[in-house]
Simulated assay, not measured.
Amino acid sequence: MPKERRERSGRVERVQKCQQGIMFEKGKGQHILKNPLIISSIVEKAGLNPSDTVLEVGPGTGNMTVKLLDAAKKVIACEVDTRLVAELQKRVQGTPQASKLQVLVGDVLSRDLPFFSVCVANLPYQISSPFVFKLLLHRPLFRCAVLMFQQEFAQRLVAKPSDKLYCRLSVNVQLLARVTHLMKVGKNNFKPPPQVESSVVRIEPFNPPPPINYQEWDGLIQIAFQRKNRSLSATFKNKKVLELLNKNYHIHASLHSKVVPDDFNIKSHISSILDESGFSSKRPRTMSIDDFLELLELLNRNGCHFCG
């Protein structure tokens, strides 16, 4: 492409990025949802009550915020870009909505979350995974979250055993919450358009959460999904996995005053457990959450632990 044409194209793109004098930064994941029908649909699917406090992450210039303010008692908007904060505050200034809006300036991942009953977010896609787990580990539990994600990430969240995209993320999130795919959102519904298609997902945490040691659970799932097509028998013959389990076996035995025989062999011990239970030939990509819960309980009961 000739230099003059490239420069002209760049100028056009910069103009297209601007809304109300603001230039959005794609590198920071700033893609403002502009379609009012989709915005209204997201707010509707959040099922807000007049008494709700809503946490909105990534409010941008406030296209969704004003709709949330109409439906809820309070909106706490978390935004990292001070230019967008100023625009949002200007938008509601002098209106009845102003007293219902609280703005938190900064990175949502680096701060404690306030109390909220519902979360709505069109957040930068690069923080999708850490934000989901920050939400799910937040206490007290919220009622639901309606979140915009990159389409493939959303598909991973809702994937079931044997699906191509079924992975560690799928299992960990579905252990803690009911996840529902709500709608696909095309690129042209944003300004500027992202490079990928998007989807909206609803997450409802289980209340109470499952009564398990989450560190133990995540340790098992992390090991299992390193090679999700490999049999569990093969996975648990990995040298580093055996070293971890052997160390933890001795730690837990010591804590419970249990004598470990001199001829104890962790590899033989685990192989015996897997063979007798029928888990030996199973592959993580086909295993349900109940399968993993049963396997974890079985291993823990036999002295095999994933955290010291």
Results as ranks from 00 to 15, higher is better:
R168H: 08
P161K: 07
K160Q: 15
E204C: 11
R178T: 15
Y166C: 02
P140H: 10
M148P: 02
V201G: 02
V158K: 04
A177M: 05
E152S: 10
V201L: 09
G186D: 15
N188L: 14
P161N: 11
N189I: 05
L169K: 09
S199Y: 02
V171H: 01
V185W: 01
L165Y: 05
P161D: 11
H138D: 06
N172E: 13
V179Y: 04
P140I: 10
N172V: 03
Q150R: 08
C144A: 14
R202I: 11
V185G: 00
E204Y: 06
Q151P: 00
V171P: 00
S170H: 04
K184E: 14
L169W: 07
L165V: 04
K187V: 10
S199E: 06
L182R: 03
V146P: 01
R168L: 13
Q155S: 09
V185L: 05
A177I: 03
A159Y: 03
Q195F: 12
N188P: 05
E204F: 05
Q150S: 05
Y166S: 01
P193S: 13
L175R: 12
L147D: 06
N189F: 12
Q155P: 00
F153L: 06
V185I: 14
E204V: 15
I203P: 01
C144F: 02
V185P: 01
I203C: 08
R143E: 15
A177E: 00
P161S: 10
E197M: 12
K184Q: 14
L137G: 12
H181A: 13
V196Q: 12
L165E: 13
L135Y: 02
V201C: 07
F153I: 05
R156C: 09
Q174F: 02
E197I: 07
R156H: 09
N189K: 12
K187Y: 07
A159C: 08
E204W: 06
T180G: 01
P193N: 10
E152V: 06
L141D: 03
V201A: 04
T180A: 09
R202F: 11
L176V: 01
L141C: 13
P193M: 10
V158A: 09
Q155H: 11
C144L: 13
R143V: 02
